[in-house]
Computed example of a mutant assay.
Amino acid sequence: MKADFVPNERQRWMQVLARAGDALTEYESRLADRPYQCIRKPETGMAMVRGRTGGTGQAFNLGEMTVTRCVVQLQDGRAGYSYIAGRNKRHAELAALADALLLGEEKTELMQSMIEPLARAQLKARQDREAEVAASKVDFFTLLRGENE
């Protein structure tokens, strides 16, 4: 069974699922009602985070972070993957299950009923956080005294 999806689209939904956190448990009953098996049970480990000087320059190791990964397989053979920040094993399993389901006929329905609402909520939370930070922003300026031209 070959899925017809644009790679960027899958990257987007995997990003939304990885950032969903506890909000994903609201969809647990709809996701877990299909039989599946864990190919790789949720396991926690460390991953090296890399950065770039100036955002585009020389790469360097910034440090390590905790990640949890999981791989599930549906009865029809579709496999779903997840890598999430932190130690929430249930979140990793649900994200992998959602990834597998999004590769099939359920894609359109799940995109509208789960991915888009989660993406909107994440965007709103980000905008709220940015507005809160912007409200506390202080603009410093230099006052030149005694300058004669």
Rank of each mutant, 00 (worst) to 15 (best):
G51H: 03
V67M: 12
P42I: 00
G55Q: 10
E26D: 15
E147N: 09
K89T: 05
I39S: 14
Q122L: 03
A96S: 04
E130I: 12
P7Y: 00
D4Q: 12
R120M: 07
R126W: 02
L74W: 01
G77R: 02
V6M: 04
P42Q: 01
V71S: 03
R145V: 09
E64M: 14
A119L: 05
G77Q: 07
A20V: 11
G63Q: 00
R10Y: 03
Q15N: 08
K89C: 00
G55L: 14
Q122P: 03
A23P: 00
S29Q: 14
E43H: 04
E26H: 12
T25S: 12
V133Y: 09
L31G: 05
F5I: 15
Q112I: 11
L17P: 15
R126M: 04
L118G: 00
G21E: 06
F141E: 15
Q15A: 10
G86E: 13
L143M: 08
D128Y: 02
R90C: 04
M46W: 09
L102M: 12
A98T: 02
A18Q: 05
L143V: 13
R78L: 11
L74H: 01
K89L: 03
V6H: 14
V16L: 01
N88C: 08
F140I: 07
A131N: 11
E130D: 14
K107W: 04
Q127K: 12
E64N: 12
W13I: 13
G104V: 10
M48D: 02
A131H: 02
A121I: 05
Q127A: 13
L144D: 13
R34P: 12
L123W: 08
Y27Q: 01
A100K: 07
R40L: 15
E149N: 09
G63I: 06
T53D: 05
Y81A: 11
Q15V: 12
L123A: 09
E116H: 09
T53G: 06
A95T: 10
R126L: 08
L97M: 05
S136H: 13
D22V: 13
E9V: 15
Q127W: 00
K107S: 15
L74N: 02
M65N: 05
R10H: 03
G146N: 07
E64D: 11
A32Y: 08
C70E: 10
V16R: 01
R120V: 14
R69C: 12
E116L: 11
E43L: 01
E147C: 15
L103P: 03
M111E: 13
K41H: 01
N148P: 07
A100H: 01
K2E: 10
E106H: 09
R78A: 09
E106I: 06
R50I: 11
M46H: 11
S113F: 07
R40T: 15
S29P: 10
A20D: 01
G146L: 01
D99M: 00
